[in-house]
Each structure stands twice: as C-alpha cells, then as structure tokens.
C-alpha cells in the first residue's frame, strides 16, 4: 500500500467521522442530504459483501466494518434520532436518476458477470455520483455550514488521492482497474467546482455561500 492510498483512506474516514460528530454534537442534521447518506450506505453494503468471501488484511477488514457501521449510524441519526431537524424539503434530488442508470451500467460494463462482481461494479459507479443530492441541496439553499464544507472537502480529497494512488500503482506495479479509475475521475471532477469555492471562501474564514 502506498502513501496516497493510505492518506486517501484516512481522509475518507475523517470525512465520515466529521459528519457523524457534527450531527451528534449539534443534535441536528440540518443541511445534510439524507439521500446522499443512504446512497453511501448502499455503496458500502454492495461493495463490502466480499467481507464474507475474501480475506485481504486486518486493515482492510477493519476499515470496511468501520465504514459500514458509521454510514448506517449516520442514516439512523438523520432518519430516526434527529429526524425533526432533517431538511427534507430541500433534499429533493431524484435518486432513481442515479440508481437506475448506474445499476444498468454495472450489468453492461463489469470485470466479470457474477452477482458479487456486478454489485461491486454498481457500488463503484454509484459512489461516483452519490454526492450529487448533497451538492444539489447546497446549491438549492445557496449555502453550507463550515463543517459540512469540511466534510465535502475531505470526501473530495479522498478520491483525488486515490487517483494518485492509481497512477502510482500503474507505474510501479503495472496494476490498473479501468472501472475504478474512470468512475474515480468522474467522482473527482464533480468535486472540482466545490474545491474552488472551498479554497476561495471557507479557508478564508467565510461561510460557503453561493452567488445569487
């Protein structure tokens, strides 16, 4: 495992925990898209079914379990514990526009036509677009709380570091996984506009608000 990959995993973990803590400490999930969080829970569930079939390393197993546990806890906080603070009126992205095309694509373009492999591929495609309901919500309300911005930034950094990890692996190991790379590129591009706003506004101590 190279440094890019490890730092990528850490920033992913940081993003997930940051969001959990934000909701827990403020006792509120205002401004957070429950739909994006459900999609991430689906992504982790579909991808990490290999926990039952394939042991890779203790690190790998622990991270997978933590990701799944945290993402389900987040969904539970939003839809159950702090339901009253959930901003459902602004969380109006139609998720079927993401789930249906990515499911169809997973059937058509995959490494192997087996149930686990199709689910893995589906999770890769779905992850690349799962943040869209959240970004849509931010654009609809025109602003995001600073912690929410940090969350989105850490999540974007994670996929960007994975891109460097893939360049590294291709160069030194001759390994590449085209499905993961193309989906990872799409995912990173979706964050670009947000990166710009984050650097020009949030890092200068301002709240992220979009021009009217």
């Amino acid at each position: 495992m190279n440094l890019f990959r490890f730092l990528g995993d850490l920033s992913h973990l940081l993003a997930i925990i940051l969001l959990l803590l934000k909701i827990w400490k403020s006792r509120s999930c205002a401004g957070i898209s429950g739909k994006s969080q459900v999609l991430f829970a689906v992504v982790f569930t579909a991808r990490y079914l290999d926990l039952f079939t394939n042991y890779i390393s203790l690190y790998n197993t622990c991270m997978k379990v933590v990701y799944i546990a945290c993402s389900f806890t987040t969904v539970w906080l939003i839809y159950s514990k702090f339901k009253a603070t959930y901003d459902g009126n602004h969380d109006t992205f139609r998720v079927e526009f993401l789930v249906v095309p990515t499911a169809i694509l997973a059937f058509l373009v995959n490494h192997d036509f087996t149930p686990l492999e199709i689910l893995w591929t589906f999770s890769i495609y779905l992850e690349s677009v799962a943040i869209l309901p959240q970004l849509f919500m931010v654009s609809k309300t025109g602003e995001a709380e600073t912690i929410t911005s940090h969350y989105l930034f850490a999540l974007g950094v994670y996929r960007t570091l994975y891109l460097f990890n893939w360049i590294w692996r291709y160069h030194f190991e001759g390994f590449f996984d085209l499905i993961a790379i193309v989906a990872g590129l799409v995912q990173t591009v979706l964050y670009c506009d947000f990166f710009y706003l984050y650097i020009t506004k949030v890092l200068k101590g301002k709240k992220l608000s979009l021009p009217a």
């Binding site: 394939n54 890779i56 490494h111 492999e117 990890n165 996984d177």
Partner: peptide, 10 residues
C-alpha cells in the same frame, strides 16, 4: 485477471 477481481482497495 484475478488481481483485479480481488479488490484490495476500499
């Protein structure tokens, strides 16, 4: 390819 199907990344 077996290495791709192992999915050692998160």
């Amino acid at each position: 390819q077996d290495t791709i199907l192992t999915h050692d990344e998160l």
